[in-house]
Design a protein around this nucleic acid. Structure first.
Lengths: 121, 121
DNA sequence: ATGGTCACTTCCCGCAACGATAGTGAGCCC
DNA sequence: GGGCTCACTATCGTTGCGGGAAGTGACCAT
């Protein structure tokens, strides 16, 4: 079989362990941190509907993988800021490629799906 | 919150409905079809360990989304060929961006994870 | 009659992600 | 003492992807 590059390379990037990027929230979190550090509740707003539990899980996993840093300030009320690391920021480029693709081709894909539904009653 | 682009755009590309690209097998299947049409059993080989059920499911979903075509030849023994459509082929570019990222940064991520494991006993 | 090939299909199951809801603790404000 | 903010944590339930094992049907070869 043709294997010009290891297929696992891309899989590792988007879905499979050990890299958590292709899950439901990671890409969105990166986008929300693009402009600078954000606090927990500031992330909850744009990520509509995410529960604190899932947000915490996602942030912890991303911190573990070196995509972002967590900084807690010993203040009252407490303040915790999340910021992208250079590694996390480096993901913006391939993510932009994905965005560009969907902007250009998503409608074709929706059309294909509708045609399929029409042809398979 | 900063929302320079709709975060759902990329999510649609990599994980969430209606686009099935960020799942476990789609990207690999596209890679295997890059050089030309392949038969069912020819796909099973490089996709080590995929079961017929899961391969069928993936191929059907990708056909429904217009990423590939399925052509059955009325021969004995039966022959079915899967080939990328232009739409499916257009995914190679953003996938390559993902590959490039993991080639350049995956080791950093592994390192980060190992450091984390060392620091959290 | 038996076995082989090809391309599936069917059934059942496990697990991890995801989600809803409620509770926690530190401390300040009234 | 009651209520407030912030950043979680705990518990429970659901859902869906993916996997294992076995069966199917058309045909041919021996």
């Amino acid at each position: 079989m043709a294997e010009p590059l290891d297929p696992d390379m891309f899989a590792a990037c988007v879905h499979v362990a050990p890299v958590r990027v292709g899950d439901k929230w990671t890409a969105k979190i990166i986008r929300c941190l693009e402009q600078g550090p954000r606090r927990f509740t500031e992330l909850q707003v744009p990520l509509r509907g995410i529960t604190p539990k899932v947000l915490t899980e996602s942030l912890r996993a991303m911190e573990r993988d070196g995509l972002l840093t967590r900084t807690a300030y010993a203040e009252i009320p407490p303040r915790v800021e999340y910021a992208l690391t250079p590694l996390g920021r480096s993901l913006l480029a391939p993510m932009a490629a994905g965005c560009e693709w969907s902007r250009q081709h998503l409608s074709e894909l929706i059309d294909a799906r509708e045609s399929w539904h029409a042809a398979h009653p």
